[in-house]
Design a protein around this nucleic acid. Structure first.
Lengths: 211, 211
DNA sequence: CCACAATTAGACAGACCTGTATGTATTTGC
DNA sequence: GCAAATACATACAGGTCTGTCTAATTGTGG
């Protein structure tokens, strides 16, 4: 079975019962994530997805457009996962933040984990690249993730919410890098604990100031 | 002036007064870091370093060997910087850890900062790549960095030093990713504060247990 | 059953890639 | 000053890259 992005395949349908466009996207997602974007050529994607070259170029005007589609799809899956994890009823605000770490714990320990698709995208398509569509998609992801965490902790009304957002995002992105560079089953739990302690310390400082 | 890796040029000599081999390394380091490794070809490195192709292949048996040299040099510079920052006399153990954050604060805010060369290397040369020399160099870096932080906090005799190492490394790597994705002058300071709070909390738990 | 759209196969252009070959110029050691 | 090592310029081989073109085949709606 193919995997897609950091968090696996969405439905279980096999490749050859899908429409050509979807077959291309799945194959490309798998190869891009496993190997990196620049090291996978169109020819290989076409061969492994069992699609004709002209069919590919009918659906995607260029490789850059396929990359952008891959990144947009990965972003959608990831934010969907974040939403279901954090929007469980009955969770406190702090628990919602910690739920992010609980949600990524297992995927990051998977043998197939290769880091954050967008941090890796930034490594290949930085400011000096000539692929505005790809770069814009990556930039939007980071902006959206930042806004997500900011609005998540907003109910806490912390004294320095901006700092807390930076710390939480750093612990998440740090987990991604660590998980692929120095595998250890306790990485995410360690950073979950760090996030909990940081938030509870901020809250304690708040209530102390009130008294 | 050329920059080399995350932390700038070492000496100020201009390119054309250097030996060919060094000229190649400097040019390659600059291009690899600014653009990514796979998107920079040998021809461009040769052209911009003003060296003949045969001279290049006399000094480096392959492009992979040049990449490994680039990574090893970057690693040496980075660990040299870590050593001078943390080995200042009169610092407490906690202050030595925080000195890492102080040392990276300014470089990470530089307009030319493009993230950690090794995390980016991992993005391009993951487990399925066919470049053992490059992959080994990257793996060695992460192992060495892990050991550096582990031995740095060893004098604290924490109850769970492994967890503290993960947290500190995650905050560092998280800073690298954040600095290039959502630039903000307070990123490193925020994570420095996080590291301080985590360590001091661990130490407080220790002294409480002793009493 | 037929017309039309979508998909297929495969060749091709032009650029770029790594690495080699050939010969000339320049520097360096003695 | 001379010999040997080093570096130079340039062409080339063989492969891969993206994207285009032609033409045959398949599938589908009416």
């Amino acid at each position: 079975m193919q995997t897609r992005g950091e968090f696996g395949n969405v439905d279980g349908r096999s490749l050859d019962e899908l429409a050509p466009r979807e077959r291309v996207i799945r194959t490309a997602s798998d190869l891009f994530y496993r190997l990196s974007i620049n090291s996978v050529g169109i020819d290989r994607i076409i061969a492994e997805s069992g699609v004709a070259k002209m069919t590919f170029y009918k659906h995607f005007p260029s490789k850059a457009a396929l990359i952008a589609t891959y990144l947009r799809d990965t972003r959608a899956i990831w934010f969907q996962m974040l939403a279901t994890a954090t929007e469980k009823p009955g969770l406190s605000t702090v628990e919602r933040v910690l739920a992010i770490f609980d949600a990524i714990d297992e995927p990051l320990q998977a043998r197939t984990f290769r880091g954050c698709s967008f941090a890796r995208g930034l490594a290949e398509f930085g400011p000096e690249a000539n692929t505005p569509e790809v770069q814009a998609t990556i930039a939007e992801y980071f902006k959206e993730l930042h806004e997500f965490v900011a609005s998540l902790i907003e109910p806490l009304a912390l004294g320095n919410p901006k700092r807390a957002v930076i710390q939480i995002l750093s612990l998440i992105q740090g987990s991604f890098v660590m998980a692929q560079s120095i595998p250890d089953p306790e990485i995410v739990q360690a950073n979950r604990e760090a996030a909990r302690l940081l938030l509870e310390n901020d809250l304690a400082a708040l209530s102390k100031r009130e008294t």
